[in-house]
């Protein structure tokens, strides 16, 4: 697995966060606290502000109000480079440099740690190797990224984010466009990342996998958090109705009683 974060760190706190565009608030009054080693999944209908929330946490978008504390520090008091030491984000559809190899891509994850006098340290090397191993992409290291399948490519991107060695990892729909097997692969990997002591916040579309793999579920609608807590406690018919305006049955998975949402036909 990835190198465990030795010191317990405070994880991620979001306080009274408002964000959006002039005249169009997108995220309103969001409070979150995700401790180290936890996986939080943000769910909600399209356009509810999930991605904007994630971008704001990653310092890509300036909040109109409120604060984001990664590792105990307000990220707007840091430089972009310092933020890259504590928060890593995998965007929804990232674009890689032309003709980059898998190892090349993962090496870019070390960029925040490098400088004119520190271009390729042993630590960089170790981080890249670990990230490749953790994601099972070791055998692909020399391949060109654009010649891989979607599932392989997504694992490579994850490897890059892991190599960045940040206490907080943000993933924007890491499983979109993947088949069920790869979805499980990626989410299992996410659990392992958290087990190593990192904080993971991810946007997910699929309520069922969110419920199964997240410690905390954050349900958003119209820019506000409508429910927050362990999936077993908060996923019910009312929540599904509120989020998606959908009648659904909530079943319990045999074994761990994890909620499974079965929508009823509309009309």
């Amino acid at each position: 697995m990835t190198t465990p974060m030795t010191d317990a760190h405070p994880g991620l706190q979001v306080r009274g966060l408002h964000a959006g565009y002039p005249g169009r608030p997108v995220v309103q009054d969001v409070d979150l606290s995700v401790p180290a080693g936890h996986v939080a999944a943000v769910v909600g209908p399209n356009g509810c502000g999930k991605s904007t929330l994630l971008r704001t946490i990653a310092r890509l978008h300036r909040p109109t109000r409120g604060a984001v504390l990664a590792d105990g520090t307000d990220i707007w008091k840091l430089t972009q480079r310092q933020v890259a030491h504590c928060v890593a984000l995998l965007p929804q559809s990232p674009r890689a440099p032309e003709a980059v190899t898998v190892a090349g891509l993962v090496r870019y994850g070390r960029h925040p740690h490098q400088g004119l006098l520190r271009q390729w340290s042993r630590e960089d090397e170790r981080a890249v190797r670990d990230a490749l191993e953790a994601t099972g992409t070791t055998a692909l290291a020399g391949e060109r990224l654009d010649r891989l399948s979607g599932g392989q490519r997504q694992r490579c991107w994850l490897a890059m984010v892991l190599a960045q060695h940040t206490p907080v990892v943000l993933l924007d729909e890491p499983t979109s466009a993947l088949d069920l097997g790869h979805v499980v692969d990626v989410l299992t990997l996410v659990r392992q990342v958290a087990a190593a002591g990192r904080t993971v916040v991810m946007v997910l579309h699929d309520l069922a996998s969110a419920a199964r793999y997240a410690d905390t579920l954050i349900a958003m609608k119209d820019g506000r958090v409508v429910a927050q807590g362990p999936p077993q406690e908060i996923v019910d018919e009312a929540l599904v109705k509120e989020l998606y305006d959908l009648e659904a049955d909530i079943l319990r998975a045999p074994g761990d009683a994890c909620p499974v949402v079965v929508p009823r036909a509309r009309g």
Binding site: R55, T79, R81, A84, P91, R95, P97, Y108
Partner: peptide, 19 residues
């Protein structure tokens, strides 16, 4: 060295520590 990162999309580049 830094300009290499412009070959990523903006979000990814920013998250890799580029202003």
């Amino acid at each position: 060295h830094r300009l290499q990162l412009l070959r990523f999309d903006d979000d990814t580049a920013a998250c890799l520590g580029v202003d």
